[in-house]
Every structure is written in C-alpha cells, then in structure tokens.
C-alpha cells in the first residue's frame, strides 16, 4: 500500500530531518521502499518548511507525491500552505499548541512542542515526539525501525533524550486513538 506522507512546519523545527528519519526507518529497517523529497526555496531559515516521503511495500516507480494521505503539521503557516486542502480520507496530526485548525479529515492534536519543552526539557525534540505519535497512530513503520532510524540520525550525546521523546510520542499517539 502506497502512502504519501507530508510534514510541514517552520524552518528550524527539524521537519526535513523527520521525513528523512521516517524514510530511513521504512527503507533500511522495515524492508519497505521509500522515496523522500523536499521543497527547496532560497530561504535558509524561517518560512514554511515542507518535506515528503512515499512509503510502499512495493518498489516505488513514480517518485513524486501527488495525493498525500498522511499529514503532520507543526505550524499555522504550514497548515495554511500545505495542510488545509487535505482530502476527507486523509489522516492529519497537528501540533495542538501551535496549530489551530479543523481540517475536513481525521485529525489528531498532539501537544508535541509543549511536551518537549515541559516533560523533556528541550523543545528541539518536538519533531521526534510527533514522529512517535505518527507511528503510534498510523503504524506506517514499526516502532523498532523508527527507533533505530532516530538513533542513526541524531547528534551524538542526544540519543537518550531523543529516545525518550520518541517514546513519549508513542504514548501521546496511543492516547488519541
């Protein structure tokens, strides 16, 4: 089954890293296929950042996202630009502390940034909390795979923090379904 996943937020939240980690989990640790793409603009910081990844059990032939069915939205601007046209059968996770939206599809609010700031002490891991929640809600990749991919991708010395963030994300995801 082909899934087209779109992440959006503002520059600096680790949006692109999140899609790369998700693709890595699928392609390297779950025996699936993945193609990750992103939108490149001239801005280095700020603005609405967007990254996408296609995940499929079969080899991915057409590599571009045309009809995303899973959305992870972490900023209001990101919602307006990349989320509000989500089709009715899509699934959307929003960072409930940053995005105020009621899209016309199944939507779950995850207080990722608030949780990262308060419980985990570092708002920088909000994207990993969202990844955890996404995996819990959709089962897109296995929990083992996403954990390995997170560990591959985060800076040395931050592994424990990121694993805690991921697991907190699993819990928050379980809580909303």
């Amino acid at each position: 089954m082909r899934h087209e996943v779109r992440f959006s937020g503002f520059g600096g939240q680790g949006i692109i890293l999140s899609v790369v980690v998700l693709g890595r989990a699928a392609a390297l640790y779950d025996g699936k296929h993945a193609v990750q793409t992103q939108v490149y603009g001239p801005e280095a910081r700020g603005g609405a950042s967007m990254g996408q990844v296609i995940i499929d059990d079969e080899p991915i032939l057409f590599p571009e996202v045309t009809d995303p069915d899973i959305f992870v939205i972490m900023s209001q601007q990101g919602f307006l630009k990349y989320g509000q046209d989500a089709p009715p059968d899509a699934v959307m996770l929003i960072d409930s502390g940053l995005v105020h939206a009621s899209p016309g599809c199944r939507c779950y609010g995850i207080p990722a940034t608030e949780e990262a700031k308060t419980t985990l002490g570092r708002d920088i891991v909000a994207n990993i909390v969202m990844l955890g929640a996404l995996v819990a809600v959709t089962g897109l990749v296995s929990r083992e795979a996403i954990e390995k991919a997170v560990l591959d991708s985060v800076p040395k010395g931050t592994e424990a923090l990121n694993v805690r963030a991921l697991k907190r994300g699993f819990e928050l995801g379980e809580g909303v379904i």
Binding site: V20, G23, A27, L28, H33, A34, V35, Q36, T37, Q38, Y40, I60, P63, E64
Partner: peptide, 9 residues
C-alpha cells in the same frame, strides 16, 4: 534536480 535531491535506498 529530481534524482539529485531525492533520497532512496
């Protein structure tokens, strides 16, 4: 740019 920037296994 498509093949240059996309990530795959």
């Amino acid at each position: 740019e498509i093949v240059g920037h996309m990530r795959e296994r």
